[in-house]
Amino acid sequence: MGNGGNPDNNYNSMQDMVLTRHGFVKGKDKSFLKNPKDKPFVGIIGIPPKEVMEELIQESAVILSLDMYKVDQLITEPTENILPKAYCAQIKRIIANILSVTDYWNEDVMDSVLVGRNPISEIIIEDSEICRCNEMGFVADYIENELKIKLRRVKNNDIERKGDYICKSGIPLDEKFGKIAGYFYRDIERKKPFKPEYVKPKCAFWGTPPWGDFSISNYFPDETHIYGWTRCVENLTPGDLKLELEFDPDIPTVFFSQSFCPKAGLASYLASKHPRGIFIDMDIGLTRSTVAKLTAFLQLNNVI
């Protein structure tokens, strides 16, 4: 079983990891926030188009992915009076992340915190018709009206596919997710793309990254190919629905979605069309029942 070299299946390599354009930063390492007052501090939700990201780089902005900023299981409390209880945990996480950004600020900027201002100067939300998430667009009003943070809605219509080397490689699944997120920034910074070797698949994972609990990756073998929206991200075409709909009918495939996510309908439908597919959803974190369902599926298909 591929577990990223860690024998503990409960290990979550993404726990407390902060994704910045400099890659993943561990916990409260604030090095990337040096002199934040001198730079625009921009939160992004989803995958903004290339030209928007290039503009931010030119401005030397500190870019914070609010999808990943703070992986925290206790995300319900800050959103309790804002969002319904039965609601997408990823959107709850994004709102909680925005509200908790002040946790990461040092004493130099505490004055802005004390007067109740959120230090994020602008939030850019990718709000394409078909992309990562249509639901977030409805919650964006809250960000703008209640938190008084400047909001920019952008559409990502990038269609030039850059390839899916990471998705079809033999590196552990949790590392694949991390490298795909990192690849997005590597491309913006014009670094050489990461192109690991192709490996013959034993099974596949279809869907968005499992933000709620990356430890689900530990139950998959390294020879797991990635399809769905995550594959679109590696291709740098997050709105490419045609690509997102693809799957390999010859390999057992787990169709994953966040609970209460509109993409759950797509995942469930594709799972019913796949000869050996299963639909799995996850709310705030991984449950024992979900693990049992997943491992039984992989075992009965002779994957593990």
């Binding site: 609970s259 050996r276 979900t290 049992a292 039984a296 599926f297 009965l300």
Partner: peptide, 22 residues
């Protein structure tokens, strides 16, 4: 608490599912 099923065709496993929470 839950329901689960397995489907076999021609002696081979083809499907399973398990409703857990919802």
């Amino acid at each position: 608490r839950d329901a689960k099923f397995v489907v076999f065709e021609g002696g081979n496993f083809v499907h399973s599912d398990w409703n857990t929470e919802c």
